[in-house]
Structure formats: structure tokens, C-alpha cells
């Protein structure tokens, strides 16, 4: 997290001037439990990718490849929504 700015250094009207600066906000630091995928059970249905609120599910060549732990906040939605129970939340 960058140092919080005082009122004098805020942009006019709170406008965000750097596009995509949500990337700087690493929500991975919030995590207590992390998702672990069982590749045997996964059918690459992409439910986890659709539901993940932080877009932390890594997908490559139409295959679910795991989680970006810089942004995964450990909410467990992926585990809850997985139709094959292929994701388990484990102590980080």
C-alpha cells in the first residue's frame, strides 16, 4: 500500500489518473486460507474463473492453471462454486 495522501495532493475531484492502478492493490495480503486445486478432479469448466471477485484464477490455453496468490484474498468462493469439489481451502 502506498502512503496515504493528504487533501492537498489528491487529484481534483478524486479522479483516478492512472488506468489499471487496481493492480497496485495486492489483496493477497488479506488471505488466511488459500485455494488448492486437485488437477485430477478439475474439468476446466471455468466456474472458478467466472466467480473469482479478484480475477485471481490463472487460465492458459483454455485450462485452469491455478491461482495468482498476489491477489487471491482467500474468500473461498471458488471452492464453494466448484461443481466437482476440486478446490479445497487450506491454511496458508
Amino acid at each position: 500500500m502506498p502512503q496515504e495522501k493528504g487533501w492537498k495532493s489528491l487529484s481534483r475531484g478524486g479522479v483516478i489518473l492512472e488506468p489499471g492502478n487496481a493492480r497496485d492493490y495486492e489483496t493477497g495480503s488479506w488471505r488466511t486460507f488459500k485455494p488448492v486445486v486437485d488437477r485430477e478432479k478439475c474439468i476446466n469448466c471455468m466456474f472458478c474463473w467466472i466467480f473469482c471477485p479478484e480475477s485471481a484464477v490463472i487460465v492458459k490455453d483454455d485450462k485452469m492453471e491455478g491461482f495468482n496468490l498476489k491477489y487471491c484474498k482467500g474468500c473461498g468462493i471458488c471452492a464453494k462454486e466448484c461443481p466437482k469439489k476440486a478446490i479445497e481451502m487450506a491454511k496458508d
Binding site: 496515504e4 495522501k5 487533501w7 489528491l10 481534483r12 478524486g14 483516478i16 488506468p19
Partner: peptide, 20 residues
Amino acid sequence: HPITYGPLQLFDYYMEQKKQ
């Protein structure tokens, strides 16, 4: 130069915005 108007500002920044 893409920009965003109207971001969420909670107890961390709202008050600075009002002071402005």
C-alpha cells in the same frame, strides 16, 4: 489518457476529498 471519475472513497480518503 484513460481516467476514472467517481471512485469509492471510504474513511481513508472521503474526508480529504471533502476538505479539498
